[in-house]
Design a protein around this nucleic acid. Sequence first.
DNA 1: AAGGATTATCGTAATATTGCGATTTGATTT
DNA 2: AAATCAAATCGCAATATTACGATAATCCTT
Lengths: 109, 109
Amino acid sequence: MGVTKTEIFTEEQNRIADLAKAFAHPARVAILQLLAQKKACVCGDLVDELPLAQATVSQHLKELKRIGIIQGEINPPRVCYCINEPVWEEARQAFGSLFDIYVKAAACC
Amino acid sequence: MGVTKTEIFTEEQNRIADLAKAFAHPARVAILQLLAQKKACVCGDLVDELPLAQATVSQHLKELKRIGIIQGEINPPRVCYCINEPVWEEARQAFGSLFDIYVKAAACC
DNA sequence: AAGGATTATCGTAATATTGCGATTTGATTT
DNA sequence: AAATCAAATCGCAATATTACGATAATCCTT
């Protein structure tokens, strides 16, 4: 089907999955790295840095905006993108907590 | 096309994207949470915990094994899964470093 | 050897994602 | 008003993902 049954999982699980999607494609990792390092900000600069078509970059930016991890400020005729700090921290926290629920000891197999 | 151009990205970016995929679906988040908390281990128990068909759970387990974040030990007629600690730590590290490259200040927009 | 229990794989269907050329939109500049 | 620039959106094609029933494989038990 290709359709995820979101309704059968918790809000938290769905949110983590969504946040993870921001990082689940190398192009988006590259974009987030560039923005986090502030090496690029304007959409056109991102397109120059990445070997992908403008339309493709724009699509990845749209997905990142949907997740909320970046935001865009219109500055005609350009758009300046940057990390949306609250969501960046939310992601850091979410993954941090997730990684911490594992404690070696007591292996069960 | 639906085909990611992995060759144009760095090894690190591709690896992060792959690790993120482990968490990019709520069912896999649920599975990893169960394994990390050792609430379940045997494949059949995971199937019982999740409202998904056995074939579907098996497929998610296969993907998690491909990424390397879990491992399975055959214990006929069952298979006991658990977190593969080195990769779990690799993921913790990778995401930790990624989140840390962002420093508020110096916003560019 | 036959049966039972458990998990993996196959085949299929539906939806999602990735990528890009072409076009459109939005706003400035001439 | 026309031209221009940057970015978003459209439309399409190709591949990937998600899900599940059915079947196969595996290995123990009888």
